[in-house]
Structure formats: structure tokens, C-alpha cells
Design a protein around this nucleic acid. Sequence first.
DNA 1: TTAAATACATAAGAAATTTATGTATTTTTG
DNA 2: CAAAAATACATAAATTTCTTATGTATTTAA
Lengths: 122, 122
Amino acid sequence: MYFCPMYSKEIIKGTLKPIILKLLEQEGRMYGYEITSKVKVLTQGKIQITEGALYPLLHKLEAEGIVITEQENIGKRIRKYYLLTPEGKNLATAAIDEFLDFMITTKSILDPTANISYGNAK
Amino acid sequence: MYFCPMYSKEIIKGTLKPIILKLLEQEGRMYGYEITSKVKVLTQGKIQITEGALYPLLHKLEAEGIVITEQENIGKRIRKYYLLTPEGKNLATAAIDEFLDFMITTKSILDPTANISYGNAK
DNA sequence: TTAAATACATAAGAAATTTATGTATTTTTG
DNA sequence: CAAAAATACATAAATTTCTTATGTATTTAA
């Protein structure tokens, strides 16, 4: 049986931020570990966000006022939830739209068969 | 009317290589300047490959045996054509397939409307 | 004749991510 | 019940990829 591995590293570059913003927009609030495991499940293991990439990015988003945090104690462990601020919601929408547009553009190059229709694309 | 500018820088990371490999596979051979202008036209200016990114990448691909070059003199100017080697063709196919798969996966997260059907997706 | 386009190239720096490492608690499994 | 795996956070060094800046030179368009 074919076991689908992870994507090669370079391909994921630049996608972490829009993915995280999308999940936060969708779920309302999430904690770091939850984001990594959710992405792993959603992608069948093809995208595994490393902690070394995730936490610094979340901290940066917080420093920029894009997210705020809520801490909760689960037993003796701390869990840090991240939520989009109002500005964060605007930025999330913009980032997701841009990424979807980017994928349409890129796909038109990589997959010419998707290029047949020139209708009223968004 | 809304004029769509270039994409933000970080979004393009990791996409240059598959794009270049795809164009070389499709066109047979291309020279550097031709690649940048072709991509600019194909994407309506949304993706503008800088020379600082392009030439080092082409040189790397050559050093790795993925492409070979053919030089031609156009007047007093040199033009360097790049062609995929047999190994390069295999790598190009793999890289393009992986990227298309990656886009399907990413789109399923970013655009839930594409997620309604849970049928026998590839 | 001057600016823009064509055509190559490299080097320094920034940014995003990997790899490695660390700490600690909780759950599962043999 | 002990050990392994999962949960949950974090940071630092190194790598990769790309931008920005700079350089040279020819050809075409204004």
C-alpha cells in the first residue's frame, strides 16, 4: 500500500500564515498544539507544522496585534488559546483571498487544462 | 476598477522551482529573461520573478544536472538557453504533480466550499 | 540622444522555516 | 505499573529561499 509522505519542505513555505489565519477565523479560538494536530488530520499527514515554525509565528502575530491570547489551566498544564482581533479578522480575510487568487494563477501555469474556460472568474 | 498588484513576497516562496520546471517541460528550452517575461505575461504581472532569484536557481539546477545549457550569440549579446535533462524531466513531472496535489490539499482548508463533496477524491 | 528594454550576473541582507533541544504533564499500552 | 507516546509549551542555531542592490553591456524605442 502506498503511504503518502509529507510534502517536500520548500513547498510549504509561505502557506503557514494563511492556513493558521483561516483556522482561527473558522474555529474562533485554537491553541498551538490543536493547530498542528488539526492541520495534520485535515491533510492526512501531508502537512505537519513543526513547533519551531508555529510558536514563533503565533508570538509574532500576537506582537503585531493580529491575535490575542487566553490562558487556561488544564490540570497542571497551561493551554494558550489564540483569537483573532478585529484587525486580525480583516487581515485573515485578505490573506486568504490573496492565497486563493495566487493558487488560481499558479494552477493556470502548472495545469494548462484548467485554463480552457475564460468565463467570469472572480 | 480594482487593479490587482503583485502578490506579497512571502506567498511566492517555494513556487519558483515548479513554475520554471513546468515552463521548460512545456517549451522545450527557454532563456532566463524569457522565463521572467513569460511568467509576467501569463500572470498579468502578479508574479514577477526577480533576476536575483532566477539566475542563482538556474545555476543550481544546472549544477544538479537537472538542466543543461546552450549558448547562442544574438548580435553581440549572449543568450543562454536552458533545457531539461532526462533526469530533469522526471523531476519536473514529480515536482509539478506534488505542487498540484499540494494546492488541492491547501485549497480544501482555505476554501471549505470546495470541501462539500467527500466522494472518491483522487 | 536618452530612456527603456534586453540579457546576463553576483553579493549582502531579510524572512520563513527546519532541526535540535529543552521542560513538564497526561494518557496509553504492554 | 513502568515505559512509551501523546500533549503542550518554548527557544536557538542553522538552512533555504528570496529580495534588494549593484554591476556590465547591447539593442530598440521615443
